[in-house]
Amino acid sequence: MAVGAESAAAKAALRRRMLAARQGLTEAERSFAGSALRDTLLERPELTMGGTLAAFSAMGTEPPTGRLLYGLWKRGAYVLLPVLLPGGDLDWAAYDGPDSLAPGPAGALEPTGPRYGVDAVRRVAAMIVPALAVDGAGRRLGRGGGSYDRALARMPAGALTIAAIYDGELVDEVPVEPHDRPVAAVVTPGGGFRRLG
Rank of each mutant, 00 (worst) to 15 (best):
E110S: 07
V183R: 04
D119A: 15
L109I: 06
V183M: 03
P130V: 01
V121H: 14
A102I: 03
G136R: 13
R122M: 13
R123Q: 13
P175F: 10
V118P: 12
I162M: 08
A131H: 05
V121L: 14
V124A: 06
G142C: 03
G104W: 11
P105Q: 13
L109A: 09
S147R: 13
A125H: 13
S147E: 04
P175L: 08
P105S: 15
V171T: 02
R143E: 03
G138M: 04
A126N: 12
R139V: 00
G158K: 14
L141W: 06
A106F: 12
P182Y: 10
A126W: 10
G113L: 03
R122W: 04
G107E: 02
V124W: 14
V134C: 02
M127A: 15
G168K: 03
A137D: 01
V121Y: 14
A106P: 00
D149A: 04
A108G: 02
L152K: 10
A131V: 03
V124I: 15
R139I: 00
M127Q: 04
A137L: 13
G168S: 04
R143G: 08
V118H: 15
R154G: 13
R122H: 11
G144V: 08
I165S: 06
P130R: 10
D119R: 15
I165K: 12
G158L: 06
Y116M: 06
D167P: 02
G142F: 14
A106E: 06
R115T: 09
A108L: 08
L170F: 10
P182A: 11
L109N: 09
R115P: 01
R139H: 15
A153P: 07
L152M: 13
G158H: 12
R139P: 00
D119L: 10
L132G: 07
R115M: 05
